[in-house]
Every structure is written in C-alpha cells, then in structure tokens.
Design a protein around this nucleic acid. Structure first.
Lengths: 203, 203
DNA sequence: CTTTTAATGCGGAGATTTTCGCGTTAGGCT
DNA sequence: AGCCTAACGCGAAAATCTCCGCATTAAAAG
C-alpha cells in the first residue's frame, strides 16, 4: 500500500507528511487503548482529524496502516548491548526486549502487527524485514563473543539472538501471559547455555 | 460465544452436531486455502452449506468460529514422547511440533488462531488454555528426567517445554519463515543445554 | 405415533463500510 | 508573486455486513 510519501513520491512535502504523522500516531494510540479489534479506519480518522476518505485512498485497509507503521518502527534505533561478555550481553538484550513489551502500549502495537501480518502479505514482509534487520544487528553480540574466543566460530548469531527473543514473543502471542523480567532472565540463561553447548553451531 | 451445543445445551443431538461439524470443517478448509484474511462468515456459509443467518446466530463473528474450533483442537490427543532420556524426548517433542506446522493446513490454522486471539478475549483465553494444558502434559518429560536424576528437582518443566516450542512459533509468527526439522533440532538442543545448565531452575 | 420445541432456512430490513465525483487547499516550480 | 497539480475535505451513492421475524425441519419426550 503506498502510504509512504517520503520515498519517491511526487510530493513529499509538509502537509502530506503531517497527515501521515497524525495518522500513524492515531494508529498507535488506538491500538494502545482499544487493541487491534478497535482499530478501524473510522476511528483513526476521528482521532487523527484526517478525513476518512483520505485514509481509504492512501492506506486502503487497517493492515495497510500497520504496514506503514512498521516502516517507522524499522527506522527507530535499538541499542545493542556491549558489556564485554556474552553472558551479560544476552541478559541485557533479553531485558531490553522484555521491558519494551512490558509497556502495554508496545505490547498492543506488536499484537496488532502480528495480526496484520497474518492477514496481509505486505505487512508480513515488512514485519519479517524489521525482525531480520534487528536480529542481524543483535548478532554482533555473538560475533564479538566469537572474536573473544567465548564461542566456536560456526555459531549462528541470528539463531542465538532469536532464541533470546523467542520465549518473550511466545509468552505474548502463544501462552498469552504477562511479560516479566524473570522470563527474560530465563531466556538469556537458556540461550547462553545453548550457545556454549554448541546448540547453535552450523553442522 | 455459545457455539458448542454438546456441553450443557438443551438439544445436543444429530442435526446441531452435524451443522457444527460442517461449519468447523469449512473453517479449517477456508483457513487452509484463503488464510485468515479470507475467513468470512459468508464464505464459511457457502462452503459448509449452513445458512449465513445460522452462523451469525450461533457464532456471531469469525473469532467466535475460531474459539469454537479451539475447543475441538483442545480435545485432540497429542502424544508425549517417552524414549528414556531427556535429550531424545525433547528432540522428539520438537520434531513433533515442527512436523505439525510443516503442514500448510495446520500452519494456516495456527495463524488464524493467533490473529483471533489478538482480537477477542474469548479466543485468547481458549488458546491460552489449550497451550497451558499441552505444556502441562509435556512437562511430564521433565518430571521423568528429574526422577531419573538427569535434572535438579527445582527445574520448571513448563518453562523447558515452552523453550522447545518457542523458537518454532517465533519462526512462524515473528520471523515469518518456513519451519523445518533443523529448527526443531536446534530448539531441542538449546532447551536441553539450558535445562542441564540450570537455566530453568526456580530461584 | 403424536406432540413439543430447539435449531435451521429464508428473505429482506437496517446499519455499516467502502468508494466515487467534485470542489478546495496547499506544496512545488518558474 | 502566480501557475500547476497532487493531496485533501466533503457529501452522497454503492456495496457489504449484520440481524431480524416468520415459516419449516427434525430431535426429543410422552
């Protein structure tokens, strides 16, 4: 869905950008206090002050809105821990993810993103891309550990950092319980033990 | 949503049960070949031969249909591996889950379930309950390992089996890539290493 | 076998969602 | 500054979704 006027659009200027910002803010707010079930084009129109017809024209569907929102999320910076040891890097990473999703607002956003990804190939691709990029960056944690000799060189860094995040997403999306620091600690400890034990090493 | 005529209903008999079976089959089929986006009451009506008004009356929404389907899923038996060692039990469990979701039909169902859970508290509760029950059963794998002296007694069995499943659900819902046996092997190996290392031990 | 009544089929009314055409606004450009 | 045109606002039409009321069917009870 062509909801992004800032890249390659014929008129990227002020009003269009303002409209988009207002709309994406409204999407976040609506997700936060009504959830994905309450996220409708009409509500976003009311909350953002942008006319309903404009939403249909530019984003077409709720999934289109979420896909566009994912573009913004993808641009945001996420700090990658670098504490000097794999063990504490993984712990810091796990806690960072957990604390992010302890915020009800962010949890609502991520649930909406997943629901949209299931319904729309565009949203799915955008979401996969955001995650792949973040995991690629976070994998530097593992690369540094390999350089320090903490891990075998064949270790799959993306697999390790995925293992750190997986239990947290599992809790949110599958077990559907609260995310807490203890869960993060467990995830980090298990991923660390797995990495040391060679569970993530290529053949 | 009161879609289950078999428990406590005034008339659990033949026609009602047949209607429900036809509808739930249609839900599975529709999910399999159109995904959650294509799952509408109208399509389910056409496919099942049940009148649209009946669907609105008994299930009310798409999420109601999925919630009812979860009731059936919850009743289905899942074998819990018992091979004599924790290592191979976890491996067998991981492969069982992975092979289940390698079937496009089952993957479509599970994506629909998650999308419904995000949109409806009833679906969310039903899904959480199915997962909790399965994890409770699978935790016997860990209990047996504790009895054999392979693991410390404080090990949280549900946490261990969750760690086996988590990477697979992560791949499906977050990374949005294909599920394969290698992923299952890695998940099992990492969970095993984590368990041995005490990552899942209480305090 | 008859009676009773819950559940379904059916058509259409009412509400909601989605789109369209047209006039207006405001960036971008000379 | 003034022209050009993409993007937006607006109201209403078209399409779709949701839910009635009533007739019919079939399961359960006597």
């Amino acid at each position: 869905m062509g909801g992004d006027p800032q890249v390659g659009s014929a008129r990227p200027g002020g009003r269009t950008a303002r409209t988009r910002a207002a709309v994406l803010d409204a999407v976040r707010d609506e997700l936060a206090d009504a959830g994905y079930a309450g996220l409708t084009l009409e509500r976003v129109a009311e909350r953002s002050g942008v006319h309903l017809a404009t939403l249909y024209r530019r984003w077409r569907t709720v999934e289109g809105l979420v896909t566009d929102l994912l573009g913004e999320i993808g641009k945001s910076e996420v700090p990658i821990p670098d504490t000097g040891s794999l063990r504490s890097d993984l712990r810091a990473l796990a806690l960072e993810i957990a604390r992010l999703y302890q915020q009800p607002r962010m949890r609502a956003v991520i649930e909406g993103v997943v629901a949209a990804a299931v319904r729309s190939p565009e949203a799915s691709a955008a979401w996969a891309s955001v995650i792949a990029e973040r995991n690629r960056l976070a994998a530097r944690i593992v690369a540094r550990a390999v350089e320090r000799g903490e891990l075998p060189a064949e270790t799959d860094g993306v697999a390790v950092v995925s293992a750190v995040g997986a239990p947290i997403y599992y809790r949110m999306l599958v077990a559907r319980g609260p995310v807490d620091d203890a869960l993060a600690e467990t995830a980090a400890a298990a991923a660390y033990a797995g990495a040391l034990g060679g569970a993530f090493a290529h053949t």
